[in-house]
Design a protein around this nucleic acid. Structure first.
Lengths: 350, 350
DNA sequence: TTGGCTTCCGTAAACGTTTACGATACTATG
DNA sequence: CATAGTATCGTAAACGTTTACGGAAGCCAA
């Protein structure tokens, strides 16, 4: 009825119905045009697309999701509160950036599912998947035993984990190569004459702590050395935790001459604690850690393991999509279980 | 038909219909029971709740949202990529924690809406709101002119901003009291005899940079001092940016004797850069900054402005809810426009 | 008995999409 | 001209909820 006169330009764009009667065609055709279905005239498709653009129409998420059974959303679950994950904001932000470069090609949106520190992560995740919030899930901060895996497997939700666990339901995973880091660190320190080497690990039951400690122990054994149980330092993954480690360290009767830090968030605190105790990093105590935005600006510069977080995110996203039926034809059906290598960047701290 | 025998315990719980016929009552009653509507027998309500619990039923998000027109989700928009946000490692995680303590009381979920660095933030936000993703939005990293405000106002989406802007559509906001920080910093430094005071600000058009610079200039003027234009340092909000500032600083012919850092993420890099240039922080150059997980572990300890990020999150959440009709009866209709105070924590850097 | 309340529950209509199916007009072929 | 095939579009039924509405009891008072 109303021709292309732009009279009611900004009428309340309630939905596809308004758009359809504005164009004087049926809503079925409009939907097909917008979704790129084949049986629609190219001429009308163009009209529809232009009208949608100019009126700012975007398909309602709930309606579409209800009908299609798919949301176009991938959730990255993480826990809030400052002392939980041990990864800083910048860690995840960089990973997200990589993930999104992949998702953007498929009109998928990445959202961070924020589990409150007050709520049980299993309950939270159960709620999220039962509500049908996301088509796929990325899990991080995996624990030694992680019930979340079983939950997602039972519900048959496509997911991938950034981190391993003793709980294994056959899902794909990516994990940083903490074994490689442990081995290379110990080898390097031993080659430089160190015989008493300490390590840090998270205070809770994050899986990486076990992996790291075990490999350190094994590598030391290969060199005929033993890991002193008192040289295993558990801490909260933040600067305060690093500071406390330094204090414990300095109070020891038989002090190690080197320490390997699995977490990057404790470095500044550790440095400070050591200096206060009269132990100069790099001279009185060799330190090897993980690269962070700070590590190269500490003095002495931290010898650290680095990786491209963006590339990690890309791999994570592609491996997840490979498990999703809707994208099976695009991404090869590799079943990714990959240890992501880290490169040693020599500094002056060891 | 099937009585309470738990034979088909884990039948595929497709939806409320299965739950209803499992209980042999209508889906209408089930829905009312679950939603706490008054006109349902307490006895049957208990039966329904128990069955839902044991079968793991949770209402499908899309169906509910479609019918109710509300999603129960609040989105916190942030940009991904490492150099964008300009907040330190755990800034957002702590704020989220506060926000969630409020939301938990109302069965609201907080999700982070992650805008890719590849995508225009305005387009992204437009997409999100048109899809009807969230009932309310929290915006951060506000710019000098921020079209996102107008977009949300036009669509009548409840929102609040963490940060101000010249763009003002009458929405509530909270912001850190950068004026107070500037004034207290300058006063303190002037009282200690400094006459050449520098400052940092973001390299882009984040609003806080303008606010901060203006107030610094005004306070200096009050003391009869002038802000040297060459003593305004713009930088990316990360450690590398801080390092570059230090290099510029050291190359200056008339070097300032003090500097105030608006951003906490540049501190470690700045320290390093100064030391490399033979300028000892706290002795050759007074420094006042923002508290971060690192600031208290630097040497010398940073004199910094601190705040409770968790309390900030709580205030943010409550002020947002106060603007939402559904919660108008719970939260007083205050129209929050609040400068969040920061406390000066003396260190040894000034 | 009648009428009016109250309490509880079932019925069915939305909400905004997508899509299977059928209808129409047109073209090509015999 | 009749028929088959193709291109394009309209119709209506889903998807899983919530909720307005009405109906069926049960109770009490007139």
């Amino acid at each position: 009825m109303t021709s292309r006169g732009s009279g009611e330009e900004r009428g309340k764009m309630k939905g596809i119905r308004q758009l359809a009667e504005h164009l004087d065609i049926s809503i079925g055709t409009v939907s097909r045009a917008l979704n790129g279905k084949p049986d629609v005239n190219e001429e009308t498709r163009k009209r529809v697309l232009e009208a949608a653009e100019s009126l700012g129409y975007v398909a309602n998420q709930s309606g579409r999701a209800l009908r299609k059974g798919t949301t176009g959303v991938i959730g990255f679950m993480m826990q809030t509160g400052s002392e939980i994950t041990g990864q800083g904001d910048t860690f995840f932000m960089s990973v997200f950036d990589g993930v999104q470069t992949v998702f953007a090609r498929h009109k998928l949106d990445l959202v961070a599912l924020l589990c409150s520190s007050q709520e049980d992560p299993n309950d939270y995740l159960k709620r999220v998947v039962a509500r049908g919030f996301a088509d796929g899930i990325i899990l991080s901060a995996t624990r030694r035993h992680d019930a979340r895996f079983e939950l997602l497997a039972k519900r048959k939700i496509p997911f991938i984990t950034l981190g391993r666990s003793l709980t294994d339901v056959g899902q794909p995973w990516l994990d940083l190569d903490f074994e490689g880091m442990a081995e290379a660190s110990i080898d390097r320190l031993v080659a430089r004459g160190h015989k008493h080497i300490a390590l840090t690990r998270p205070h809770d039951d994050m899986n990486l702590g076990y992996v790291f400690e075990d490999q350190c122990r094994a590598t030391l054994a290969r060199h005929g050395l033993r890991l002193d149980e008192r040289h295993i330092f558990r801490s909260t993954p933040n600067e305060a935790g690093g500071y406390l480690i330094a204090r414990e360290l300095s109070a020891l009767e038989t002090r190690p001459t080197a320490i390997v830090l699995i977490n990057e968030a404790i470095t500044v605190g550790l440095y400070r604690g050591l200096v206060e105790a009269g132990i100069k990093p790099g001279r009185d105590m060799a330190i090897i850690g993980r690269q962070s935005p700070h590590s190269q600006f500490l003095s002495p510069r931290l010898t650290s393991f680095s990786l491209s977080l963006r590339d990690l995110g890309i791999a994570l996203a592609e491996s997840l999509l490979a498990t999703m039926p809707a994208f099976a034809d695009i991404y090869p059906a590799r079943h990714a279980r990959l240890l992501w290598p880290m490169a040693l960047v020599p500094g002056e701290s060891d």
